[in-house]
Design a protein around this nucleic acid. Sequence first.
DNA 1: TTTCACGTATGCGTTACGCGTATTCATTTA
DNA 2: TAAATGAATACGCGTAACGCATACGTGAAA
Lengths: 108, 108
Amino acid sequence: MLQILSELRKNKNWSQAETAELLGIAKSTYAGYESGYREPSLRALIQIADLFDVSIDVILARKNQTTVLELATISKMDSMVLTVDGKPLTEEETANLIAFTRVRRELG
Amino acid sequence: MLQILSELRKNKNWSQAETAELLGIAKSTYAGYESGYREPSLRALIQIADLFDVSIDVILARKNQTTVLELATISKMDSMVLTVDGKPLTEEETANLIAFTRVRRELG
DNA sequence: TTTCACGTATGCGTTACGCGTATTCATTTA
DNA sequence: TAAATGAATACGCGTAACGCATACGTGAAA
């Protein structure tokens, strides 16, 4: 249910112990969330969402808000920023990614 | 914290008892949420969000609107799909885009 | 006044969360 | 190679708090 926690954490290059400390909980407690051994309480869930700066629905992988977004559109939106290694993609970078994808698909 | 429950419920012209029955919980339990006497468990919260068809963040009155998203994270999320030319990016394609971006940035 | 619907408050049993601890595995250091 | 350190995971136990049954207060309708 909470597999995404591992992804979010690794994107920040944090260990479970570091993350637990930032959350103010025991490392075994946090590890239990990732492994699926336990589910976080509502209070813990809110802290986690705040720490990773994502919505609770994202953490719970709730699909009630499945959104399909065109890469080209996102780069024009002010309300959303894509990052790689924590660094925002520029419009030029995004344009290159789109071109890159088209070429690769063309080649099969 | 959960004042919005009362509004969501009244918008549907439901009594607390009706709502509780739809949720499969005791009416005193549901009433406790609205009055602030108790907070719902995570399980109950998910059922409530599904019943009213709103996101959990809305129920919790969280103002976060995740604007910065790591590309690597998105590809792992079921709740969001990126497309190029209307065609979804596969996980492999996304991984290639990330690698491509890193190389380009490395080269200056 | 009685009755009924609605919302609310609380005692109590039980669930399950959080911590400490132990274990396993991988990597590093002497 | 062994020892040590770091990382991830599993589990026992105490207890916080959730859910239910029940009781109570209010207002409207008869």
